[in-house]
Design a protein around this nucleic acid. Structure first.
Lengths: 323, 323
DNA sequence: CTGAAAGCGCTAACAG
DNA sequence: CTGTTAGCGCTTTCAG
């Protein structure tokens, strides 16, 4: 019944199969997993499955997993090291065959080490671990080109004539957020512009942060005020647009706004958001594909980078002297 | 180690516990599950985890599950009976302790029966099954008041002075969609208005459907044209607004638009969407709470209805004779 | 209170 | 090709 290559008379096989259907027999996967040391369970550790960013990745993971007969477990860490660690341990105890870390590394003393301990334990038992973002764990990683995307977007704004471009950063303890900031800075430096620290605002990858940033920007004296705002992610960009709207500023006439991520709603907001598109579902798919390959003991690359693309919509416009 | 009530000398206990930590021993959950006939695994069968509707529910499920030491498995059915059934069988084989059907029943001949067979098998083994929408399965169900919400919203539009109110329906094979349509019709009938079949448009719970409906509505001669459009879900409403925008119609000045669901992006679109708010996460939480209660052999109500509320934002306005 | 043993349902290995 | 058996790592039961 396990359709192995074990030789068995065709008549006998049919007889067994028939009896199985008649009795409604189906193998107990738990017993099978226990015996075979393969649970056919994989897990995605995400920050929050209700966050469209993670939801898309998870969808990619689940798709590939189910295509290959694996079940997918969701783990919401809420970016709390304790939760993440607890999940990983539970997964280890369930003998999960693989774990995908969808978010970046969580910055907390000794968390990385504790995580690594469990990871090594799992690896030594034959499990495969993959990260889908820059991470401290020394495991294969599939990543999206956050740096390149941020640089490309900033360069595009420069091409549009903008010179004072604000950046609303993400949580400083998130690597992804920092890398995007780096990309923004790189583009400015490459263009021979100096970095104005007043134009780098703190955000939190959420709408509120963007809203606050918008109001902060309004406080900047007009001669130093940015003509474009680049938000580290789409949620923040939505917040920025909302905040701007609250003060009666029109986007993109008064100021250009762009984000990073290309969430589905980027096309629904008004004006439609210019943003950097990340192949999120593909990230989940590729990650899972690699994970399954690793499970088959295939060699997989330590790092794969998926390209991001600038998608210009209506929230950005060329710089014009007078408003 | 299983912290049971089994009497054991405190000294011995400590010795064992100490040895366990030293050796890095942790119980194998698979073996434990096999032996105890409880996997501590529950599953949420959703249409698509990347759909914010399901994502929110799942989040509620996962929260409660993890609080109680359960792992959550995601299953995307894409509303395909075959997929749903396949998942359910797999879950049965994994001895999942519980399954939550997040979406409504899938309309296909004999699907209901096949599903029920597996459900009964699982129930007889002690598993708990719950639905989070109207369903053909005879299992406890937690639902949101779709009928009441649709009726309340329609009534509100009537209060605002609208008399010709269009309804963009959802997929006719989805119970939720039909119930909302019923609520809309009930409100009109209660108000003593006759139903105009031309004002009931077909949609598909997606943006495209809404967009199409918007264009269709524009074709209606002005004297019969609706002054408000009630979309069966938010995605459709976004599509309607988009379609209206394409034709240069202003919402809510030219026409009022409202949706159903209160997705996060309802607050981000412009104008912000008036909609019926569903306690999605609560639905997931309550459902899981009941499921766990059932697992403890507690009596749980066959049907619980969670209230929905009309949230008025800026996409609706009182009816005005001249535009 | 402790130690030993049976068995959950499977797979892999071994004789026949 | 078929039938039997040992164990995967637990929990539960039963003697001591």
């Amino acid at each position: 019944m396990s359709n192995s290559s074990y030789p068995v008379n065709i008549a006998t096989r049919e007889k067994v199969l028939k009896a199985a259907t008649e009795l409604g027999y189906t193998p107990n996967s738990l017993a099978r997993s226990l015996r075979s040391q393969r649970s056919k369970l994989i897990a995605a550790i995400v920050g929050d499955n209700a966050d469209p960013y993670f939801a898309e990745i998870m969808r990619g993971v689940e798709d590939v997993a189910s295509e290959h007969g694996y079940l997918t477990i969701v783990c919401n860490s809420d970016r709390q090291p304790a939760k993440e660690l607890h999940y990983l341990r539970t997964l280890r105890d369930y003998r999960a065959d693989g774990v995908l870390f969808a978010g970046g590394a969580l910055n907390e003393p000794s968390h990385a080490q504790r995580l690594e301990e469990v990871v090594n334990e799992m690896k030594s038992r034959g499990a495969a671990i993959i990260t889908l973002a820059q991470h401290t764990l020394g495991v294969p990683s599939i990543q999206t080109d956050n740096f390149g995307g941020a640089r490309a977007m900033t360069t595009r704004l420069l091409e549009l004539g903008h010179r004072r471009i604000a950046f609303v950063a993400g949580p400083s303890n998130l690597t992804v957020a920092n890398v995007r900031l780096q990309g923004y800075m790189a583009a400015l430096v490459e263009a021979g512009l100096s970095l104005d620290p007043h134009l780098i605002l703190t955000g939190n990858f959420d709408r509120e942060g963007g809203q606050r940033a918008a109001h902060d920007i309004a406080q900047i004296p007009v001669e130093h005020r940015p003509t474009a705002i680049f938000a580290a992610n789409d949620q923040t960009a939505f917040g920025v647009m909302l905040g701007l709207g609250e003060m009666g500023w029109r986007v993109p006439d008064a100021i250009s706004v762009c984000g990073f991520g290309d969430l589905p709603m980027a096309q629904i907001v008004f004006p439609q958001l210019t943003t950097v598109s990340i192949p999120l579902r593909q990230l989940g798919r590729t990650g899972t594909l690699r994970l399954l390959a690793a499970l088959r003991n295939e060699e997989i690359p330590p790092l794969e980078v998926l390209p991001t693309t600038v998608v210009e919509r209506s929230s950005t416009a060329p710089y014009r002297e007078a408003l």
